[in-house]
């Protein structure tokens, strides 16, 4: 067994300033004449610097507005029980349609025009085929684009989170799920369902 192992186990805590005074004194005395342990200490310090050098990220500009919208929604729906919906699959055409419809919705939102109740869904379904042909892109790419736009819709313009507006404009009750992700998925589901039933 390496006689230095005992010391080396102390090194990470030492580098973090988390050893007791006694441990610190013992280790420092050892480090003075042990090159191998000094090398270990140096590696730990370098790793720590490397991790500390990772650039910091910041929340998106809409973060606060979306949060406020979700809180408003939560307050409004306090006490309501939200039914869970069964998951179901959209046929291939349905997917493209959903993607295109959402893209259109997103574009309308992004241009700052607040859609009339029901108008978004109706417009989008009429435009679906056109959009799909126009985009000529795999569903995946289209979806990314949709996400990108949806995630950047200025919530202040909307007064509430995008998914909520979508579900309202579809004439259904507001999505009261706590997670933004399920809110988005709920929107896709709602749009997809309306397209599937084609009951506009």
């Amino acid at each position: 067994m390496n006689p230095c192992e005992r010391y080396q186990q102390l090194i990470p805590a030492y580098v973090d300033g988390e050893t007791t005074a006694e441990e610190k004194a013992i280790l420092e005395a050892h480090l003075k004449h042990c090159a191998e342990c000094r090398a270990v200490e140096s590696r730990v310090r370098r790793l720590r610097r490397l991790l500390q050098s990772l650039p910091a990220v910041s929340t998106s500009p809409e973060f606060g507005a979306i949060l406020r919208a979700r809180i408003r929604l939560e307050n409004r729906n306090a006490g309501h029980i939200i039914p869970s919906f069964p998951t179901w699959r959209v046929p291939a055409f349905g997917l493209a349609a959903v993607a295109a419809a959402l893209l259109l919705i997103a574009v309308i939102w992004n241009s700052g025009r607040i859609p009339q109740r029901g108008a978004v869904a109706v417009t989008s379904v009429y435009k679906t085929a056109e959009m799909a042909t126009m985009l000529k892109a795999p569903v995946d790419t289209v979806m990314r684009r949709v996400h990108y736009v949806l995630d950047r819709v200025p919530a202040q313009t909307l007064g509430t989170a995008p998914a909520v507006v979508a579900s309202r404009s579809l004439g259904t009750r507001a999505v009261a799920d706590s997670s933004a992700r399920s809110a988005r998925q709920e929107t896709y589901r709602l749009v997809a369902e309306r397209i599937r039933r084609a009951s506009f």
Partner: peptide, 30 residues
């Protein structure tokens, strides 16, 4: 918000998921 985002982002590796996590965290706090 930013320190939690950094934590979640480094943990999950996805900005989008990290932002959702931070949103949900504040919603829980609320």
């Amino acid at each position: 918000k930013d320190q939690l985002l950094n934590f979640a982002y480094r943990f999950l590796g996805s900005r989008q998921e990290a932002e959702d996590v931070v949103q949900d965290t504040f919603l829980r706090v609320y």
